[in-house]
Computed example of a mutant assay.
Amino acid sequence: MKVLVMYVDEFSYTPAQKNLDSAEEITEGASFTDSVLAFIQIEKTDEDNDVKSREKKLVNHLKWTARKNNCTKIILHSFAHLSDSKASVEFTREVFDLAEKRLQNGGYTTAQTPFGYFLDLQLKASGHSLARIWATL
């Protein structure tokens, strides 16, 4: 799993193009402020592990990043451009959904960008230490 996390002052998206036939129809975008934005790619090798172990590893990293940025809002964004390896859609969705639920149970406000879409993105990211963190989990 590859993760690029940014603390963003502002982030918004608008659905641009559906790229997964099974994705639900989404036409509305959303905007967020003062959030941790996680670009996440679940890799094929992640499927060799239990889905819950992958979800727990992701959540621990996101909580650590949020604490370092004094933030309680986390946005999960599937970003299949951090590696050549891609897990199945089903496995990826399950990791995302379980991670979001665990984060919410931990008191975080969460959101997921629309899965299966290319999005028009706008973001304003702070330039301080730990505002951008890349990791292989």
Rank of each mutant, 00 (worst) to 15 (best):
K124C: 15
F39Q: 03
N49K: 06
F118A: 13
T113F: 05
N49S: 14
K101M: 07
E47Y: 08
I133Y: 03
N19D: 05
K52H: 08
S83R: 03
K68N: 11
N70S: 09
A135E: 10
K63P: 00
R132P: 01
G106P: 04
K57P: 02
R102N: 05
E47H: 07
S85Q: 06
A135L: 15
A38L: 08
F11I: 09
H61D: 05
S85Y: 10
D48H: 09
C71L: 09
T136K: 01
T65R: 00
G127K: 11
N49I: 02
S129N: 07
D97F: 14
L98I: 15
F79M: 08
E90R: 02
K124E: 12
K57E: 06
E28K: 15
A131G: 06
G127N: 06
T14P: 00
Q104F: 06
F32M: 12
I75M: 11
T110G: 02
V95Y: 02
G107P: 08
E25M: 13
D21H: 02
H77N: 08
Q17A: 07
E47V: 05
L76D: 02
K63A: 14
L137E: 02
V51E: 01
L103I: 11
E94L: 15
T65P: 00
I26P: 00
L137V: 10
E55R: 01
D48T: 08
L20H: 04
Y108I: 09
F115G: 07
Q17G: 03
S85N: 10
K56E: 03
F39W: 11
N105I: 14
S78H: 05
T72E: 03
D97W: 10
D9C: 12
K52S: 15
L137C: 06
S129V: 14
K52E: 07
R132S: 11
S129M: 11
G29F: 14
S126C: 10
T72L: 07
V36P: 00
E90N: 10
G106T: 12
T92P: 01
E43Y: 12
C71H: 06
D21R: 06
F91P: 05
E25Y: 06
I74Q: 02
